[in-house]
């Protein structure tokens, strides 16, 4: 017969209880958490300082104009009529058109550079996309006005001709006339949106590309080993992994699209009615309104302009919160495994 000797520690006569574990950081870790928290807090202070600056302008404006500030679409401060309804609608129209063009193109560019491009060309293509991001916005505004607008107005006319039965593709002119009125399709949210898309897509594309290149090699190789094609690898590994990066890049781009000033200013012809037709001449955005009017604005008018900026900031906050909830559930959002 055998016996097993189990050594016991002298103090170990206590009943079985879980050991109290302290999760709080200590020593160097605590310094790290507090230090980085301080930096994060200072960033928050700076950025919310701007929000506070805008909010301070908003209070007297809303007090003066009341809730009609959000429903009125005329902007005539000399007559006492001030409202941002038309301007907000225009801002979102331009942003939606810009993202409609920029999102697929950014995705295509990011996938092309990370998956399809020859390895020797990759760094060159990456530099080219960076260069696109660095072109000054006034140059894009002039390019959009001088080079893009003639082509985009023709495209708008084509859309009106064949898809004009959709209410938002309608324009108040006859597209089939022999001498069609080209001016009616220029200076619109459509043209401005395409120009803004050119500015937004390098930003979104760079972020997406960075994330795609981090997709785990083991999973890629596993997919290839199971016989999938290149597109199969993209569809099953890269895109699901990169969902957080795609959304993050798109949100970054959307932010830029909402805030773009000079290019929109140079292209559009400002109009303050509630315009649901992006192809037609005349629109306005919050940034273009502020930039165009702040020079001649009295202090009260300047406050009204900045209140419009504040409303834009709040709406962006809400959109980004929603997007963040989606990102947190994806793999590249919630932390990844090797």
């Amino acid at each position: 017969m055998t016996s097993t000797y189990v050594p016991t520690r002298p103090a170990d006569r206590l009943p079985d209880e879980p050991r109290p574990v302290n999760r709080a950081a200590t020593g160097g870790d605590r310094a790290f958490v507090l230090g980085s928290g301080a930096i994060g807090a200072s960033v928050l202070v700076i950025t919310s300082g701007i929000g506070l600056f805008l909010a301070l302008q908003a209070v007297p404006t809303i007090a003066r104009y009341g809730p009609t500030f959000f429903t009125q679409n005329e902007w005539a401060p000399d007559e006492g009529k001030v409202g941002i309804a038309g301007v907000l609608l225009g801002t979102f129209t331009v942003a939606v058109v810009a993202m409609a063009f920029a999102f697929p193109l950014a995705l295509a560019t990011a996938l092309f550079i990370s998956e399809y491009a020859p390895v020797r060309l990759k760094s060159f293509l990456v530099s080219m996309v960076d260069l696109m991001a660095a072109v000054p916005s006034i140059i894009y505004g002039l390019w959009g006005f001088l080079l893009l607008q003639p082509q985009a107005s023709r495209l708008a006319r084509w859309l009106h001709q064949y898809l004009g039965w959709l209410p938002f593709f309608h324009v108040d002119t006859d597209p089939n006339a022999a001498q069609w009125d080209q001016t009616e399709y220029t200076a619109s949210a459509f043209v401005a949106g395409i120009a803004v898309a050119m500015m937004v897509l390098p930003m979104a594309s760079s972020v997406m590309r960075e994330v795609f290149s981090q997709a785990p090699a083991g999973e890629r190789e596993g997919a290839l080993a199971l016989g999938s094609t290149r597109w199969g690898v993209i569809r099953s590994v890269v895109l699901p992994f990169g969902k957080g990066g795609i959304i993050g890049g798109t949100m970054l781009g959307l932010g830029r699209a909402l805030g773009e000033t000079i290019a929109v200013l140079l292209i559009i012809s400002p109009s303050f009615d509630l315009k649901f037709r992006p192809l037609e001449i005349g629109t306005n955005t919050v940034s273009a309104l502020i930039a165009g009017r702040f020079g001649e604005a009295s202090p009260g008018q300047l406050r009204a302009l900045l209140t419009a900026g504040f409303v834009l900031f709040l709406i962006t906050l809400v959109i980004n919160t929603l997007a963040a909830m989606v990102v947190a559930r994806s793999r590249s959002g919630a932390g990844t495994d090797l």
Binding site: V43, L54, G255, G259, I290, G309, F313, L317
Partner: peptide, 15 residues
């Protein structure tokens, strides 16, 4: 912090 910072990316340059 993340939400506020992200909203700030939409800041118009004029503001």
């Amino acid at each position: 912090i993340r939400t506020v910072v992200e909203a700030m990316t939409a800041l118009p340059s004029i503001v």
